[in-house]
């Protein structure tokens, strides 16, 4: 087997004595798409925060492409190629949608490739927005972010990640709050990204979407990994059903 792109080793985080994430380990091969599922409050977002560096772990290690990144600040992990979306979208509300992408395009990771002129960046930003389903010829990309509906903001969040040309893309409940048609338009894009070789981690409640993308899944409950395997098999697991539905006869 090839070298894993991401190794998570006994990762633990306690908030004031309460374990939010407890001794979680898994490896991720390049090009894989991993789904993380679990009931609310099971530590999914904390795990994402630990991998991306937004929260410092109490114990454990994170290794990305053979390099230990456990103590690397969040921005430096982005520079290495880890991009994430936020579950609670918080765009730059005062800026037009396309201007929201200027900041990632300006970052050290992509800044040089896109070119120094601000006009270039505007063009790249428009292209990215088109890719995630903003209508190019409409007024939508020029509208201030605060006036956009939630579904657009979610896609703007995705565009922000794609702007960073990630090698590992972490999507934290990207599809929650999107309409069926919005999901239908974004899903093929993510499949395309996966086929292009980008490694994906997706935290998702919507299992149907998760099944289409992920080839492997882990299940969290109370911060611990309770199952791992093929998505369809994992979800059939007795323990998983119990955790999700909270009753034994489910």
């Amino acid at each position: 087997m090839a070298n894993p792109i991401l190794q998570v080793d006994h990762l633990t985080k306690r908030f004031g004595g309460i374990g939010a994430v407890y001794r979680i380990s898994f490896d991720l091969q390049p090009g894989e798409a991993l789904g993380i599922i679990g009931p609310n409050g099971s530590g999914k977002t904390t795990l994402v925060n630990l991998i991306t560096g937004f929260v410092k772990p109490t114990a454990g290690r994170v290794t990305f492409r053979g390099r230990e990144i456990t103590n690397l600040p969040a921005y430096a992990r982005v520079e290495l190629g880890i991009a994430r979306s936020f579950q609670m979208v918080r765009p730059f509300y005062n800026l037009p949608a396309f201007k929201n992408l200027i900041i990632p395009l300006f970052s050290p990771r992509v800044g040089k490739r896109v070119g120094g002129k601000s006009g270039n960046r505007d063009e790249v930003a428009m292209h990215l927005l088109e890719e995630v389903g903003f209508e190019r010829d409409s007024q939508v990309p020029y509208k201030v972010a605060s006036s956009l509906p939630h579904g657009y903001l979610k896609r703007l969040e995705l565009a922000r990640c794609l702007a960073l040309e990630p090698e590992l893309l972490i999507l934290d409940e990207l599809f929650s709050g999107m309409s069926m048609s919005e999901v239908a338009s974004v899903l093929p894009l993510i499949e395309k990204i996966r086929e292009q070789g980008t490694t994906i981690i997706m935290v998702e409640h919507r299992l149907r979407e998760l099944f289409r993308i992920a080839n492997r899944a882990i299940v969290l409950n109370f911060g611990e990994k309770i199952a791992e395997g093929k998505p369809e098999e994992v979800i059939a697991d007795e323990q998983v059903r119990k955790a999700y539905l909270g009753s034994e006869d489910a």
Binding site: E79, N94, I103, L105, L164
Partner: peptide, 25 residues
Amino acid sequence: DSDYGLVFKGIRDNDRSVIAAGINI
């Protein structure tokens, strides 16, 4: 008004997103 200044304003309005964009705020 430049893109560089946009980063400044971004940090003021929402530093989390600027960090997630790979910028050392």
